[in-house]
């Protein structure tokens, strides 16, 4: 089992695919050492564009490249790309440009740098744009599978990646299915829905809830936040009485809200949205911040137990 940040895994997968997909170009805004897009530069230097600290210009130029037949991957920290929202809205989404916006350093998992380098609102922003697809892989295997899918699938997309290490939770040969939930473990008492770094924590929390409370806990990974799996959620709403969504993002308008929007229409299970509860981030280690926000396995288990007895 490996333990790697998804920024590393995704960028390595893209670099590997560079020679095979000659229309792929990569842009970065003076963060290629941190986003790891430098891995692509090393393989395909002529198709890598260092844009300087100019995120807005980078996104616009990516749209122009895309409109000329390229598949343009734009890298920066999630906060700095999602922060150029209106440029994305008009130049990328509205124009239907084949631009893949890759936001690394998502969530409070960023750690010591503090809130100005974190993005706790990017899913909310990107979900709100028509035509924009929103993805968050949970480990190295899913990051590579998603990368392959994006190289082959035209259109605007947003990908959210971690700064911190996440353990491998998928088996080799995993196939990414766009717009579908990814069931990691079945269960009948409740289902934990994770996305990105929280999926592995949900698995550990399910173990703990099984051991300490004798609960049968399902774990569902949500790599495709938009499109969201309406049928999949409707079916889980019949299989379990309680769904707890867990994300390193503001609970407002994130993955949990996407699930809530579906549940409100299909009915069935009760839902608890868990994540960062409308607060700013701060400095600290990723582990300390996951503890504080109860996004680690123990915290998730506590939240789930409390939700059952409510």
């Amino acid at each position: 089992m490996t333990n790697a940040p998804t920024r590393q895994s995704f960028s390595a997968a893209l670099a590997e695919r560079g020679p095979q997909y000659p229309e792929v170009v990569v842009l970065d805004a003076d963060l290629s050492k941190s986003t790891k897009s430098e891995l692509f530069r090393k393989v395909c230097p002529d198709r890598f564009f260092q844009m300087g600290i100019c995120e807005q210009n980078m996104i616009g130029a990516a749209a122009g490249l895309a409109m000329s037949g390229k598949t343009a991957f734009c890298f920066s920290f999630a906060c700095f790309v999602a922060g150029r929202f209106e440029t994305i809205k008009i130049s990328v989404a509205y124009g239907g440009a084949n631009v893949k916006i890759i936001g690394t350093h998502a969530g409070v998992g960023v750690g010591a740098d503090g809130y100005s380098q974190m993005s706790l609102e990017d899913i909310a922003l990107m979900r709100s744009l028509p035509a924009m697809r929103v993805y968050q892989p949970a480990d190295d295997i899913e990051a590579a599978a998603l990368c392959e899918h994006l190289c082959r699938t035209p259109g605007p997309a947003y990908v959210r990646l971690t700064r911190q290490n996440v353990p491998t939770i998928h088996a080799d040969g995993y196939v990414f299915r766009d717009g579908e939930l990814d069931e990691l473990r079945s269960g009948t008492d409740l289902a934990l829905f994770g996305t990105g770094a929280t999926s592995a924590e949900c698995l550990k929390a399910a173990d703990r809830l099984g051991d300490s409370q004798g609960l049968s806990v399902a774990v569902v990974n949500v790599p495709s936040i938009k499109p969201i799996d309406v049928d999949g959620i409707a079916s889980w709403a019949k299989r379990v009485p309680l769904i707890v969504t867990v994300e390193d993002h503001n609970v407002l308008a994130g993955m949990g809200s996407a699930v809530a929007e579906v549940l409100a229409e299909v009915g069935g299970a009760r839902l608890l949205r868990h994540g960062v509860h409308d607060a700013f981030g701060e400095s600290g280690s990723a582990a300390e911040l996951y503890r504080k926000h109860r996004l680690d396995a123990d915290g998730i288990a506590e939240v789930a137990v409390a939700a059952r007895t409510r």
């Binding site: 740098d113 100005s116 911040l289």
Partner: peptide, 27 residues
Amino acid sequence: RTFGSELQGHPVVGTVAGVEACTGSLG
């Protein structure tokens, strides 16, 4: 930069006295 410290990784208004603006996102 430690958990709970007023000395955030980048300056934040309302933490230590004397910080006049939230910066860290360049520009």
